[in-house]
Design a protein around this nucleic acid. Structure first.
Lengths: 233, 233
DNA sequence: CGTCTCCTTGAATTAGATCAATATGTGTGG
DNA sequence: CCACACATATTGATCTAATTCAAGGAGACG
């Protein structure tokens, strides 16, 4: 989905410019960061629950997911864990401002990721490649996602939160009716600001209501897309 | 604070590039968007509670605050209001992806804002001015703010939320000990995902605990900065 | 088959919401 | 300047939803 070839010459100057960022139709035809000349990275396999980088560490590498799911999380001083986002195939993560990571990145499932050096990106920018518009696009998309997350957490009931999470997750899956849930109930809870018990109860409630089915704990069937989406923001 | 002159020639090509975005020290020396040649806007006065633009409307103008406070908010179908951010002097707001505003902007207090046309920005980008790095910076800063907001809302008690909000707000004020609170308790509640009663009770609790003083409802004195900051993320 | 991890369900507790009353403050007109 | 009305804030009492604590169930894997 993220891999459509950039129609046209690989010459950067002729890319769709950042102008289109602010127009009605977002530029899906933007060349992904890793398709730019000079932008090469190394493929890395990451085992389930392995940490890719730690909160607070200097930003040397950023990543693009080839397969698997990664959680961006933060540990509060009292031990609570806060999950900021689940990243999927095609997503870039670890690209942050100010030289220091503000989240830990951990593999939810076994993952393959490509690691890129910040220095290469900096060189590209310095050489005036038209990469900045794509960085802006990337950042603005993350703004939207973070705002969505904040809106999800404010003044919504447990069932509502879980329903919105499931709808969002299903929307990002290839087969929207049968969806894998690679993350644990605890993960979902830490993302939604709920205990895993509350997540479990909400799932049961949605299942009882005929909105979803859970053939097993990690597989979701969306039975009533409309009812699920009704919770949406 | 946002108005230090760009040391050096006004020629754009010699600006600190986006490279520095990803370095340890964020580029405070970046030229503000409105200092770029060709980037002129019109000064507008906005009365208290007046709407500057509505959620869902096409993006024609974006704004920079000269004075006053603006809230970015959203109304849910059930009437609940969600405040995404309070913007202050120097902040840019209304610059969004995809041609449509995703929040309403309303004046919390009487405001003066400068309105800029999206079209001017697009022209600047098309003419290859080095504006893209600044857009990226702007967007990445908003990412951080939105992530902070989400973290604030997840699994934190009412007092904790209010304390973090106050600490954040005081940090952005010129005199950090005596701070004006231009927004209502309801505004704070809609930002923190709490009822205004819960906000009021939390404030009382913080005052009783000697952490803050409230000489009147809209004035905050930070008595114990450390205790207030202890709630911080 | 047993063990381990993850998930679900139950019962008790608590924090915040809701409903309701009172208080503070601000501006207006007498 | 005072009295009144209106908006905003605080406080109180009850109720509800989610947490916490605790037990039992379902798979995965050696």
């Amino acid at each position: 989905m993220n891999n459509q070839p950039a129609a046209g010459p690989s010459r950067i100057g002729s890319l769709p410019s950042a102008v289109s960022l602010f127009c009605a139709t977002p530029p899906d035809q933007a060349v992904p960061l890793d398709r730019l000349p000079g932008m090469t990275g190394s493929l890395i396999s990451v085992a389930r629950n392995q940490t890719i980088f730690h909160d607070g560490k200097a930003t040397v590498l950023f990543y693009k997911i080839v397969s698997g799911v990664v959680r961006a999380c933060k540990f509060l001083n009292d031990g609570r864990r806060q999950i900021d986002a689940f990243h999927q195939s095609g997503d870039i993560f670890g690209l942050e401002l100010g030289g220091v990571h503000r989240f830990s990145a951990e593999a939810v499932s076994g993952c393959k990721v490509i690691a890129y050096r910040y220095r290469v990106l900096e060189t590209l920018i310095r050489n005036n490649e038209a990469i900045a518009p794509q960085l802006t696009l990337h950042a603005m998309q993350r703004v939207r996602q973070a705002q969505h997350h904040a809106a999800l957490l404010a003044r919504r009931g447990a069932v509502e939160r879980v329903a919105i999470f499931l709808a969002d997750w299903a929307a990002g899956a290839p087969d929207a009716t049968s969806v894998a849930l690679p993350m644990s109930r605890q993960d979902i809870g830490d993302y939604l600001g709920l205990t895993m018990e509350a997540v479990s109860r909400s799932l049961t409630q949605l299942e009882t209501g005929g909105v979803i089915a859970l053939p097993n704990a990690r597989t979701l069937h969306v039975k009533n897309r409309l009812a699920l989406g009704a919770f949406e923001i």
